[in-house]
Amino acid sequence: MSITAIFINLFALVCFMYGVYRDREKAVESLKKAAFSFFKILPTVLIIIVIIGLMLGFVPPSEISRFVGEQSGIFGVLLVGVVGSILHIPALVSFPLAASILDSGATVTAVAAFITTLTMIGMVTLPLEIKKLGKKFALLRNGLSFVIAVIIALIMGVIL
């Protein structure tokens, strides 16, 4: 287990202990919810794991970096941003996926653009957003989110 994993588990444990101290019944209820969500997301996690395995085994890093590596330039970042905006997968499983393309030659910029657009922009949920918050708000938020996702990604590429 890595130090990070230990830290995360300790953090969860401390939060849980505090929860028990505040209200024992609620703490039990949150554990039940946690178990339920765990089994709900498990198949999705396993699907992503198999995809990562196949991708790392079969797609040569040179191919991956051709699209999202150093030589792909701003075009690569925009491409990843568009993919991230369209894909509709839980954020939790997007991180291992992002880490795997980073391992096989993608730039920090591309990975940051992928995660930021994936979490902030939702083409699939856009109709619902328009219905609830209005066309102007929804289009502005999604459009500008794309712009700032690219800016954030470019800055990250420079500083990391």
């Binding site: 969860a12 849980f16 949150s30 969500s37 996690v45 939790l92």
Partner: peptide, 22 residues
């Protein structure tokens, strides 16, 4: 990747469960 995920997933779910209940 599976082993990296499996060590943190339960903890992450507990955190989410706590936040949603409290």
């Amino acid at each position: 990747y599976l082993s990296e995920m499996i060590f943190i997933l339960p903890a992450v779910m507990v955190l989410m469960g706590l936040f949603s209940v409290y």
